[in-house]
Amino acid sequence: MSEERRVRVLVAKPGLDGHDRGAKVIASAFRDAGFEVIYTGLHQTPEMIVSAAVQEDVDVVAMSVLSGAHMTLFPRVKELLGQAGADNVLVTGGGIIPKDDVKELEDMGIGRLFGPGTSTKESIAYVKEWFAIHAVSR
């Protein structure tokens, strides 16, 4: 009876810097790809991100991190999601992240991380693929 379930994505912009262009670009691209995108604005703390992710029952949290704080932000969000019982949420994102850090984060269970200039098509394809395999019933 149900139609194809929509992918729900929280696009989050943590940190103190005031640049949310990247986040907005990916949010619109996700919308155009048919996702339901929840955008929460600038200056999100990991607690705010996780609280929103839980209340919105999203499949994916996509974070744009330009501040250099990726090594704390991604693991922290992942950890808080686990504590909230939402451990089947994909944590992914983008930013200026050195290769070694990417490797380390991925080893911690963070999803793919996209560097600056990555085509939005690539992240859309990645989310769709993840969703097809891992999405739980909601």
């Binding site: 949010a27 919308r31 790809a33 995108v37 955008y39 929460t40 604005g41």
Partner: peptide, 10 residues
């Protein structure tokens, strides 16, 4: 597209 941009939480 069937997609939506939900920005009320901002």
């Amino acid at each position: 597209t069937g997609g939506a941009l939900l920005g009320d939480r901002i």
